[in-house]
Nucleic acid binder design. Sequence first.
DNA 1: CAGCTGAACTTACCGCTGTCAAGATTAGGA
DNA 2: TCCTAATCTTGACAGCGGTAAGTTCAGCTG
Lengths: 219, 219
Amino acid sequence: MKGCPVASLVKRTYHHGDLRNALVSEALKLLEEQGAAEFTLRDLASRVGVSHAAPYSHFEDKTALLAAVAVEGFHRLSAYLEQAVQENSDPTEQFVQMGEAYVRFGTEHPALYNLIFANKELPEQRDKFPELTEAGSAAFGMLTGMLGRMQQSGFLREGNLDGFGFAVWALVHGLVSLITTGHVECAGDCADAEIGTTEEAVRASLLGMLHGLKNPATA
Amino acid sequence: MKGCPVASLVKRTYHHGDLRNALVSEALKLLEEQGAAEFTLRDLASRVGVSHAAPYSHFEDKTALLAAVAVEGFHRLSAYLEQAVQENSDPTEQFVQMGEAYVRFGTEHPALYNLIFANKELPEQRDKFPELTEAGSAAFGMLTGMLGRMQQSGFLREGNLDGFGFAVWALVHGLVSLITTGHVECAGDCADAEIGTTEEAVRASLLGMLHGLKNPATA
DNA sequence: CAGCTGAACTTACCGCTGTCAAGATTAGGA
DNA sequence: TCCTAATCTTGACAGCGGTAAGTTCAGCTG
């Protein structure tokens, strides 16, 4: 009968008081420990100390809860990207650092990342979760924003900015996906494929794409 | 009592005769109709006309069956790539066509593609399914093989070939993933993001990466 | 041709999941 | 003080993957 709700000194009451937030934050913890596929509503509820049907007072179904979790996930991703932007001034380094920050987020929080991007249900019901779309656009906007500044300074060549963003996004997303699903069989102790460390491969990939987007005049 | 096993004229018998192959091929059909998440062993068994436990005579568990399906999926992916190689001689066009073929395979067979790449269980149990690793390496080998020829002819710059392959693979994989999960909200009727058609965006992304890998001397 | 054996298949069951309906509890306004 | 509405519990349901025990039958042995 331990496992208190708000603070650890508050007695367990029939009404939780802040169950909605408790569910989301506990779900985030849960996704740090196990994969998104093993994520269970009943397990989540029991961890928070409520019955298995209690979440339905705050969320229409499992997908709605996951959408709320994904919103927080997007915010955390944006924080990773924001940090990379502010810590660098050199355009090349800013580009690479932002890409590496994206990949770092994905590899450090694979289940959360997977929930956000590999979940087909969420984009399908985009109308139902406007906050999710908003948070996602904000993260994507940080990418295109940086590319726009690089383009305006003449560092990148002319061209459709959203197209550039799409290409870069696809690259970093693919990197995260291949790494977290284990399809790249080297993470330091490389066997047959001599890619080197994963970090090196990621950096090389980013530099390759950046070089393709550069302004030929400054090359 | 219809739904015959081998040929449609053969009477249903207690012993199916070729259940293993029937399960795999029916699973492939099923994955054309619905997502990998909705894929159910019981549904598959009933479609083939056997009881829900019959598949366990031929496969250890659901994952083992999916592994067999994934092997066939890799073969089909390789066929897409092979065609692109043979139909083009110009290096740039060969590169782009191969990338487009990859993306076409992913978008035309999203559930099958998702099963192969977004499934964490399969790579984890790679030792149990050597055929799967082999089929996957064959597909990746077609990519690095093409890059190797381009490098040898001086069209690509020097550098780790597996690293190049990893970067290109990540890009096309990311493109497929973003498109099939619906995160790129334009497929002809683009609203806010002015990327143009998906085909154009894919081509532009591939050209960007290719340009980054090119030999500066031939640029 | 009769009998046997082992693989293939069915039936019945288990624990687990997401979801729903009905009842219990309680915070907070009338 | 009482009443209402939101919150939470209990108990149920169908469907899932997986297991165990029983049934059927193809094909080999004598």
